[in-house]
Write a protein that binds this DNA or RNA. Structure first.
Lengths: 263, 263
DNA sequence: AAGTGGTCTAGACCACTGC
DNA sequence: CAGTGGTCTAGACCACTTA
């Protein structure tokens, strides 16, 4: 069954406005409109390359190019051997300020607990070691040229899907030998521990920037084509110095970043 | 000239690790590495399709696919008829919190003045009208079903390049008939005017999210392929109510979003 | 006028998915 | 095993840029 041989077969979609517009663009626009109309719901399969070739009477590469448009927009996700599907996602709301309030971190709750609701959260690929800091980190931490840092890197996995890579740099002069060099820093995490050491952070800065991932990042985060990442660089300041710089890379489709503040 | 017949011709780059890796991926990786090594500086022309065909002995579509990888990563920008160039960009730092401090907006400085340094800033495509709010805006503004809003939309252009689209919604019940319905709201902008009307904002919320643009947005912002946009939804609250919702779409490559806050 | 990227065709083989 | 997307070839014509 399947397609049979419907030669005058009514296309899955009718072509439209061929005036000046490229074929692949017209096809992409038809599909995009159908998605927005809800004709293809999130998770549903879209017409494949063969469907489009027959329906619009175009060559394979042209049909592919049309699908590539939607894929690069992040509206669709290809699955090898199975088809192209409408994307569905469920973003986490990350409270950029509230999560760092004193209340949150001294009370021993995870910094991420507010973000994830009831979904299953795990941290893996934890790695802790001492090292020379990269130049950009040394600048941000305002360290002497020969100062060393403790590097804590980890990956956050939510409901089975990796959503964030995090690498935290702390001056070795402050934290060397403390619990921070263990995989599990205990209740309250890094900031509670810094407070115990007399360097509790009082001010924070977060710089956010968005870009397309490189292949290795896309793999570690399990990101399909057409999904940006957000880089977050957070600096934590005690009363007198910079006590931590945390570089994070997040799957942009997994997050909403929220900042609340007064005038 | 042209191709001639240099069959053993030395490639622009040497192929590497063909083990399992696709040809176009290997080419893309070579180029990416060369860019990161600084071999191709920002603004410089990369080897074109013809160069790659000869250098790697591949078909046109394969060379194109390799370049498409870099373009989709935002590392390179194609210029029709001219070549493919290494991207260079110069992000604006947008101070998400400081810019909204009372000092900033009552003193009559533009909300964006802190962002732009000395670069030429202009606002165009200004449009002001009254309308029924879209559903999502009515919810955010906590309005009755029949309430109307004043809609102010505009485009921000920095040094000749569009960087941000902004659409602001204000309850008509508060602002109708005021200076806010004129194109130029005067010194201090919308928030100073709201304060004059007795609805000065005291708290703000910004929700940020990143995604790939759709074609019409890419055109309005002059965004090349491989560049995400950042959506910002800012809500402004007076002591008693929501006084403004501002939906913004920014060229992600043009901005760094900065948030400073204390614990 | 030459070179460039943009689009398009008509084939081909492959690995993977699903039944 | 049939269908799918992933990759690749070898041509072609076009509009555009640069000189």
């Amino acid at each position: 069954m399947l397609v049979g041989h419907e030669r005058t077969g009514p296309a899955t979609h009718m072509p439209s406005t061929p005036g000046g517009e490229r074929k692949y663009q017209a096809i992409a626009r038809d599909l995009r409109a159908a998605i927005h109309r809800g004709e293809y719901a999130p998770g549903m399969r879209l017409p494949g390359e063969n469907d489009l070739m027959r329906g619009y009477d175009v060559a394979r590469m042209t049909a592919r190019q049309a699908l590539a448009v939607l894929i690069n927009e992040g509206l669709a996700v290809p699955r090898k051997g199975a088809g192209v599907y409408v994307r569905d996602f469920l973003p986490i709301i990350r409270e950029g300020i509230a999560q760092l309030s004193t209340f949150t971190w001294v009370s021993g709750r995870s910094i991420w607990s507010a973000d994830t609701g009831s979904r299953d959260l795990r941290v893996d690929q934890v790695e802790v070691h001492q090292d020379d800091p990269p130049d950009r980190i040394r600048v941000l931490l305002e360290l002497e040229p020969d100062a060393r840092v403790v590097v804590r890197s980890r990956r956050v996995v939510l409901a089975g899907k990796p959503v964030l890579l995090s690498t935290s740099y702390l001056p070795a002069a402050i934290v060397a030998g403390s619990r921070i060099e263990q995989d599990d820093t205990g209740a309250g995490g890094t900031y509670a521990l810094l407070a115990e050491l007399g360097h509790g952070p009082e001010r924070f800065r977060e710089d956010l920037r968005s870009r397309m991932p490189e292949p290795d990042e896309a793999e570690r985060l399990g990101i399909p084509a057409g999904t940006p990442v957000v880089d977050i660089i957070r600096s934590a300041y005690s009363a007198t110095k910079v006590v931590e710089v945390n570089e994070m890379t997040a799957d942009a489709s997994a997050y909403i970043f929220r900042y609340d503040f007064g005038a």
